[in-house]
Design a protein around this nucleic acid. Sequence first.
DNA 1: GCCGTTTTCGGCCCGACTGTTTTCAGTCG
Length: 574
Amino acid sequence: MSNAEISEILNRIAELLEIKGESRYRIYAYQRAAEAIASEPVDARTLMEQGRLENVPGIGKSIAAKITELLKTGHLKYYEDLQAGLPSAIVHLMEVPGIGPKTAMRLYNELGITSVAELEAAARAGRISGLPGYGPKTEENILRDVHNLRLHEERRLLGEVLPVVADMIAALRSVPGIRNIVPAGSIRRMEETVGDIDLVATAGDPAKAVQAFVKLPQVREVLGQGPTKATVVLRNGIQADIRVVPDEAFGSLLQHFTGNKAHNIILREYAKSKGYSISEYGITDLRTGTIKPYADENEVYESLGLQPMPPEIRLGTNEIERAARHDIPRLVTLADIKGDLHVHSDWSDGVASIEDLARGAKAMGYEYIAICDHSASLAIANGLSAERLRKQIDTVRRLNEADPSFRILTGIEANIRGDGTVEVPEELLGEIDVVVASIHSGLSQSSEKITTRLTKAIHQPFVAVIGHPTGRILGHREPSMVDLGAIFAQAAGQRTAMEINGIPDRLDLRDVQARQAMEAGAILSTNSDAHSVDQLSQMLYAVAVARRGWLEARHILNTKPLGELLEWLRARRK
DNA sequence: GCCGTTTTCGGCCCGACTGTTTTCAGTCG
């Protein structure tokens, strides 16, 4: 049973407890534990075997015992009893936005509604407004929300949402009276997927700014609107929120809407223990009752004696603790990146010429780029035979002679075969600068098999980078069962880099895995895996993953200047 | 249910909007 599956069950338990009307603190404990196990890189079974389940913050004696029962028996009596005692219909009804446990319970008990379809029928028939406490407006909203639920798609990829956000912000910038309009929430944290778009802004007249927002041409429907905030659905189906405060509280507002829920709770608890209360309007001194707004976000943290920290790590893990010790490292930035070690040209399945890719990379300020087209057996991607690779190497050599100010490295994305050998034309080995080795088939193999394959590849002396190590595709393919703990230890020993692949639906390794690799002593490589010139910008996403994994420039191979990189490649081959 | 250089018991973040209410509960982020 995977950590994700355990997390799912803990969340279900939280839902059921909510319906039961249990203490909200107990509910929150289950939600927190669900989040903790989901973002824990080490397999729960391993933790259990080592007796370390309770070491995970948010997991105590009781939940650790439940996880153990799940792992050992595949069942959890506590969960099954909860389910048996409550109609499953309630959980279904709560999927409709605006319907919480109380409303769902009443609809079930008083009208016998057991599904979303029955809910819709009841609303249409006017049966809901017949209940005390509900009016026609409630019915109208239920019909609207059921409709939106059907349209509602899964969380969107960050790479899909960022361009939309850029357009909205550009439009709002031109509205008189709106200042400091920026994205917050999961977008500012650069999460791999985004549930809704959060925007924050300041204005002398917040209500007018909110009004301008809901009148944007991108807006299909207004779900809610007050003097300082609004929620809308965009024409593309994405939900967007805006929150507006006066200028002097911009820092407080930004702080409030950037961290995830866990981060904010931990921060506010920390503040409270020191006699302060934090909100989007400022920090209140609980002794005097006076509130001080902050225009600068960093000052919110500094005023509490905390080191300010980048948005990407405000996740409620241990960042507050580290900030209190002034132990937040300087995370890698895009400006630290000196080159891209995984790029495809039109020689295989890319669409750009090597020249254009090099020009694009040079324009980004890079010193080098490695052309890593697919190896021969990946025929579907027009993989390179030894003969074509030889030609490509000659081409690269000529281009390098023509422009000594930039270096095109020869490379290949070599397929890792079923037996763990790596597909590289041996006669050309001495001429290939960068070998990225990746698995493209057999991703659903057993943990032992796939771990053995990758371990063998890591030990090949000419393999510099392991490409997209888990093979996952967000929304389409689960990561392989590879034992990353074992892999990272091998990679550290062999000095083989682990890739953070920047394709928006790969992001492989992901944040917690990258952090685990770094802590194991492995070096990482942030790569765009671009198949066009535009896609070189996917480096942004790879760097974001690295930042979310607390990586510094020194942990990343391609922050090395060209000379150092060449020396690193040479040294590890002998 | 979790957690602790103030605590092993008694706490556990903060505020906005909605609909239907005469003062607030429910829901959400």
